[in-house]
Amino acid sequence: MATDPAPVRVGVAGHINLTPATERLVADALRVELRRISARPVHGVTCLAAGTDQVFARVVLATGGSYEVVLPALDYRDTIDPAYRAAFDELLDRATLVVHTGHRNSGTAAYVAANRELLNRVERLVAVWDGEPGCHAASTDRTVRMARQRSIPTTVIWPADARRASRDR
């Protein structure tokens, strides 16, 4: 009896501050890309940040896949805006695995470590990125560069009419 092949492991990186309309555009684009990558449901890897990561987790679930979460630091949940914690908690509860980087406190070093761990766990990366350079070592552009340096196939998605929200969202 033949066994089904393991699902493709797809990681995500991308902007946190997306407008609600852009989140819908990104969800549609992610559904298309995941179908392009594999006819079977994928296994996602995400840090579950607001914006891209959470949209990705929902799309993976909606397409029959599963995901694991790489948490940057032990205090990561505390850094999330209280208005968004319930969504984070609900998605975290649905993860098949939760991995911690070992950092106690959130910050750039923890986020870089989480991005490295995410890339260690995937066969492909999907990045929701507007093409602009980031302002710190854990920015989307740096994760894309790191994936490409490791020869991880990387797809960049930025739908027409996509916009980033103001940072005070």
Rank of each mutant, 00 (worst) to 15 (best):
T3N: 10
D4K: 13
P5A: 13
P5L: 11
A6S: 15
P7S: 04
R9S: 10
V10L: 08
V10G: 00
A13F: 06
A13D: 01
G14S: 03
G14N: 02
T19I: 12
P20W: 06
E23G: 03
E23Q: 11
V26R: 00
V26L: 02
A27G: 14
A29R: 13
L30M: 06
V32F: 01
V32P: 03
V32Y: 02
E33T: 13
E33Q: 15
S38Y: 01
A39D: 13
R40W: 03
R40H: 07
V42K: 00
T46W: 00
C47L: 04
L48H: 08
G51P: 04
D53A: 10
V55S: 05
V60H: 02
V60Q: 05
L61R: 11
T63G: 11
Y67N: 04
Y67S: 04
E68Q: 15
P72V: 15
P72H: 10
L74R: 13
D75T: 06
D78M: 10
I80P: 06
D81T: 12
P82D: 07
A83W: 05
A83V: 15
R85K: 13
A86P: 08
A86M: 10
A87M: 05
F88I: 05
D89C: 11
D93M: 08
R94H: 13
H100P: 01
R104I: 10
R104N: 00
G107I: 15
A109W: 02
Y111D: 10
V112D: 05
V112H: 12
A114T: 02
R116M: 02
L118V: 09
L118P: 00
R121M: 05
R121C: 08
V122I: 12
L125M: 13
L125E: 12
L125G: 05
L125A: 13
V128I: 06
V128N: 00
P133T: 04
G134A: 04
H136S: 13
A137Q: 11
S139P: 07
S139M: 04
S139A: 15
D141F: 02
R142W: 01
T143E: 01
T143Y: 04
Q149A: 14
S151R: 15
T154S: 14
I157M: 05
W158L: 07
P159C: 10
P159L: 09
A160F: 02
D161S: 14
A162G: 03
A162K: 05
A165E: 09
S166W: 14
R167F: 13
D168T: 14
